[in-house]
Write a protein that binds this DNA or RNA. Sequence first.
RNA 1: GCCCAGUUGGCGCAGUGGUAGCGCGUUCCCUUGACAUGGGAAAGGUCAUAGGUUCAAAUCCUAUACUGGGCACCA
Length: 875
Amino acid sequence: MLEKTYDPKPVEEARLAAWEAAKLYKATAGTAVPFTIVIPPPNVTGALHIGHALNNTLQDAFIRHQRLRGRPTCWIPGTDHGGIATQNVMEKQLKAEKVDRQALGRAAFLERMQAWTRDCKKTILGQLRRLGCSLDWEREAFTMDEARAKAVFVAFKTLWEKGLIYRGERLVNWCVRCGTALSDIEVEREERKGGLYHIHYKLEGGGEGAVVATTRPETMFGDTAVAVSPKDSRWTHLVGKKVLIPFISRAIPVIADAHVDFEFGTGCLKVTPAHDQADWEIGQRHGLPAIKAIGPDGKLTEAAGLYAGLSREKGRDQVIADLESTGLLRKKEDHKSAVQVCYRCGSVIEPLLSLQWFVKQIELAKPALKALDEGQFKIYPSNWTKPYRDWLVNMRDWCVSRQIWWGHRIPVWYKDGAEPRVSLESPGPGWTQDPDVLDTWFSSALWPLSVFGWPDKTADLAYYYPTSTLVTGYEILYLWVARMQMMGLAFEGKVPFSEAVIHGIVRDRGGKKMSKSIGNVIDPLLMMDKYGTDALRFSLMAQAHPGRDIAFDEQSVLAARNFVNKLWNSTRFVLMNLPESSKGVRYQLEALSSARLELADAWILSRYQATLAKAQLHLDAYEPAVAAEALYAFLWDEFCDWYIELAKGRLTGAEGVEKEAARTILVGVLVGTVKALHPLMPFVTEELYGALKPFVGETTEFILNGGYQTAARDWSNPAAEKEMGLLMGAVTSIRSLRAQLNVPLGLKIKALASGPLAADVVGKHNSYVSLLARLEILQASVGPRPAQSATAVADGVTFYVPLAGLIDFTKERERLAKDLVKAEGDIGKCEAKLNNLTAAPNVPAEKIVEAKSQHEAAVARSARLKETLAVLSWP
RNA sequence: GCCCAGUUGGCGCAGUGGUAGCGCGUUCCCUUGACAUGGGAAAGGUCAUAGGUUCAAAUCCUAUACUGGGCACCA
């Protein structure tokens, strides 16, 4: 016998152990097209957060769903070494221990990183297990393990040989804090307040000179020109002359360039090719030299004269102060500008001229564009397609070298006087390897290939590649998704996955981004501890509308927990009503005799079928929220609240075919629903399935081994759904009357039915209505409405409930008057619709029939309410 | 600046042309043999605004406002 409330902990532990022991998640193969997902490998930076819980629950739900539909499935687990992010974590640890990274040395540092990675992987993979992820654990991969290192090397070498990788001195995004270059998409923009400074540059040899406007005065020591717009008559007289940089008095030419906007600032732009992208381009056009005013350490260089050695920030303050005191600062305006910051540490990016490795993008992007335009690759929801496409079209070369230690070391060796060589090992004495490592996204880009053993032509690669779907957040659409497409097409000629499912971010209750500094982060483990894994999963899935962010409220996990418990208890109820002796009797829906079905039976079977179809359809379409909603509403509002209550009539009665029919439907519908819920809440459903399966003659050990319940019969029954709907309305009307007139439950009441449906209600469905509305007697009303009675009006039937001495007639009149207002409103709406339809051409006849019956029903309801009110005025 | 989403009861969200729904919360009643993690009842929204298309608009179109996001930026 099941416990009274569901206790997740022991069930989850037992199920995890059983699944693991049975190697249930081992990838399956078969003749059908496999459904394959590679996990977006979490960085080994710490524990999983709620976003990971969302991402992985989605994947697990899709994988389980496809497997239950009968497809071979494969879901690959793994982790990412995470480059800068992970190195930052380690650096923080070292700082706390007061250890200097440089003093520690590269080898010792990497050893510590390996140890950290081992621990972290264990944590992350353990958390994925706990979340119930049906990952094929034997295929665990890491972006820096041996197999993946081989893939990285071969990819690098191949690109090198094709001439798609080059080394060159370019202006790159430099993070001063991380001490490394970043790619363009690793840079974020933040609006910050600052100043716009108007600085006077004197004319060489005397004269007025120019006034430039800049937000970065400290870079002036790197200026190599002043540019004005060719159309700007204010400054044309200066073009060709030279001006002097303040303090260092280096002379620089005044040039004309169309890039300059003469309406901005003073119309004079100082050109610093070594520290600004636009200036770099002007420099290229005019053959200007690039002089570095700021070094990789973020400090002003020798070029800054007396200011050398100051940090960027201090240098700026000092320069401004000195300009002011020397009268060269002509004006200072407040100015908002979008500064670039490092996506990992948030510090301000310094555009810096440096020697880096780049991957040419144009040729790689072309096949990716083609795949998109020809429909080989689709993005869900589709509104991300355009940004993705635009990015592919406009991308610049990808800077792949990083000046950190943690990562795949660039496999290029140098020797004086020799051409550099690409090699894993040292080519011989005297060769030194490039000290830099590759961008972590380089290995991530190869992930769908490398997890299947690429570059080797493995059987796995042949069978599982291309994979089916990639599930990820929109924040790494360019960083990762696009690059996988490019690499997959470049190396295997096929898209790595034909669909990308883009989900949103989990935010806090108020819609704010979760962050440790604000302190609004939700720990998924805590939620699992408190409410159970299934509750967390269901809560996330119920809110996971494609591409939309989730405002996460702990209340929703509580609600999901309650739903899990509802499922648990409905199963408990059904089991209680199945005689132990019937284990093996095989209750089967297929065997039911249609002639013996009651209205409620036909109704619930019809609803059951429609619900399962809806849930599957939406899981196919990657819309788990709709599936979750449908199953939730069916199980709770229809199966439990109505069907179980009605079945109680037969279950408490004598043994016989009617009772057996009720048992068959209860257990059959429940088993099917449990299986349908399995992708969303694997633990509790597995447990319940274990308890239910003996009664339906199933011996499959786990739900995943069996598959969804397949319908051998078509239960669809619109007539039963409609009739049941009327009956439910009738029941609700009496319940409402009871509640509003405060008729105590203990009071035995009688109801008299009149109206067109009265005969049916009293004849065929007497027991249903009596049971659910708690009536002592339900009879047809003969003669006039009894005095001293309350009235409940439903579609097709009116009930009189004699309540001598109990009714407050004023209250009753108020109640009915309110109903009347609503009924009249309905008539208005129905009338408008009917008039519209009859006046309009080309309206299908059945639409008019439907509108007519709706109108008639509303009119009838209103008429009966009016009658009653009239009678009530003289009780 | 360009582009994309969103705007529906207190909160969070469904709802792609035909009488506005759900969950949570709120109010009242109820411990009746599955479940108080429960049951019943009720209150609460002219679906951001202004136009338009249509017999009929939360739903389609246009504009505006606000919010969020993507991209590109004036140094």
